[in-house]
Amino acid sequence: MREKSMNNELLEIKNLEIQYVTDEEVVQAVNGIDLTLKRGESLGLVGETGAGKTTTALAILKLLPRYTGKIKNGSIILDGMDILKTSEERMRKIRGNRVSMIFQDPMTSLNPVFSVRNQIAEVLKLHKEYESGEAINDEIAGILELVGIPRIRMHEYPFQFSGGMKQRVMIAIAIACRPQLLIADEPTTALDVTIQAQVLNRIRNLKKEINSSMLLITHDLGVVASICDSVAIMYAGEIVEYGTLEDVFKPENKHHPYTDGLFGSIPNLTVKSNRLNPIEGLMPDPTDLPEGCKFHPRCPKCTERCREGVIPEAKNGSHRIKCVLYRNGDLRGRNDV
């Protein structure tokens, strides 16, 4: 394995804890996660509704709801800078410029009364200086070209675009300033499969061209397999399994029971099975999480040890699993090189 140098890491999240606090209840959205994203790497953050994926993304941009979202603990270091200690003024210069976000729903994320050109120009003008309108137009045309929209459609309005095209416009806005980090929150969930394939292809090619890192939030393991280099599986605000795509996707490796459950829940296209093997039960109530391992009430391999205390993390190179079943260095089924 390659030696990591400090400079190689773009984003480093350490022991991040986030709660949503209201008068009646405290929602424990993120409970101590550690993540590292290298330059040019794409990381898939996988989990079901309420796992804390989007909360993590919003925290990186410092966009948590002002009065309810509270970061209790931990640090987020972006390119050597501590996000949590950065002023709002500086953050505004970072958002859309060095870090940008693609949202799930292209239908509502674009402002219907501005032309596509103007929406992209808005971001560009915020973060860069231009001599003339022509210069901006050229730049915008170039960006649209990257996402596969011809220059002549520049002055059209969002309603004139189809769903897939709108999502490309969203991507164009997000990459306009060539961000170091692109956060994509379920970018293809609202799209049809054939259009999803087109958009995923675009994202994959773009990453090579603008060489940015990407944090992809999704519930779809198939999407992760097609564009990510590493994967973090989230459950109830914790990362239960983390590693390279190979670490997590290789059936021969050892896995967290939740990861196994996720894979078992997906109907397999190649093997005809009679019944799926779903995970029993439901996500726990985030205002009242279970003690010990958050997954133990649904876990088929649950032991007495899982019900309380801190659950240790087993490591093997890049592969990490938060489960009492495994020991350090013992995550490969076969002998590893």
């Binding site: 029993e280 039960g281 439901l282 726990p284 109530d285 009242d288 003690e291």
Partner: peptide, 17 residues
């Protein structure tokens, strides 16, 4: 901690309602 009634129907046993 609630949710101990796993003898119930497995699919609906665990929300603390």
């Amino acid at each position: 901690m609630k949710r101990t009634d796993s003898t119930r129907l497995p699919t609906t046993s665990d929300a603390g309602q």
